[in-house]
Simulated assay, not measured.
Amino acid sequence: MKSALIADDHPVVLGALKILLTQEGFQPIFEASKGNEVIPMIREHQPKVVVLDLDMPEMPGLDVLDRIYANEMQCQVVVFTSLERIYYQERCMRAGASAYVSKSNDLQHLQKALRAVMNGYTYFQSLPSVALSSLQLSEKQMIESLSNRELTICRYLAHGMSNKAIAELMHLSHKTVSTYKTRLTEKLNVESKVHLRDFAKRNHLI
């Protein structure tokens, strides 16, 4: 029997994924609705595949992915997320994920990814080679220069979260978050939280 773990906090998505995984022969299927639950559940259940959302409460999916491979856990990770592929797919590849599927795609893409991964292959779609304006290219390079944690905090700030709320969510000190915020305004060349939100919306980060 091949087991699986779904890490996603949306009940509708969980239900659809359980049906798909069952059809693909996975049993038992475990569920984690918070990022900080994933590593303990992998240790306990040792699933063959983890279907991981990047936008998770308590611990961001990129941090989860880093910890899976830092701990040399023997599971294949299929990232299934709504976050923009152009900014996240390569990060996930570098972190050791075996596949990246956008939630905007038909579930058949996830089915193909699962089959590829279980047969020893990876599943990553080629990124669109669209012509970018000089502003878009410059901002894309700025985003690529961010660390995973900086990118996560950038999204939280753009969503309007306070430093205190981010600190509690990510188990960081208020001072650390404040430092990250200052670093982000410098790296992204924005003057305020309002401009940061505009930047994030313009680049489909939120």
Rank of each mutant, 00 (worst) to 15 (best):
A97K: 06
V49K: 01
H174I: 14
A167T: 10
T81C: 07
G15I: 11
A97P: 02
L5G: 04
K103N: 02
E37K: 13
L127A: 09
A165V: 15
R183C: 09
V12Q: 06
E191T: 11
D66R: 12
L17C: 03
N71I: 10
P40T: 04
K193F: 08
S82C: 00
L137G: 00
L52S: 04
S173W: 15
E24R: 07
Y100N: 10
Y69D: 00
D55T: 04
G15W: 09
V64E: 01
F30P: 00
S129E: 15
N203K: 06
Y123Q: 14
E191C: 01
E191N: 06
K175D: 05
T122C: 02
S173E: 14
C154L: 13
E90S: 03
E90P: 04
Q23T: 03
K175C: 07
S129N: 14
T81E: 02
R197V: 06
E139D: 14
I42F: 05
K34H: 12
R155F: 07
M73A: 04
V101A: 07
A4M: 09
Q74Y: 04
I19Y: 04
N148M: 08
L110N: 07
G61W: 09
Y87W: 12
T182K: 04
G160R: 11
E144T: 00
H10G: 03
V77H: 00
S102T: 13
K18R: 15
L169D: 08
F124M: 14
G96Q: 12
D9V: 07
R183V: 09
Y69V: 06
P60I: 03
M73D: 02
M73I: 14
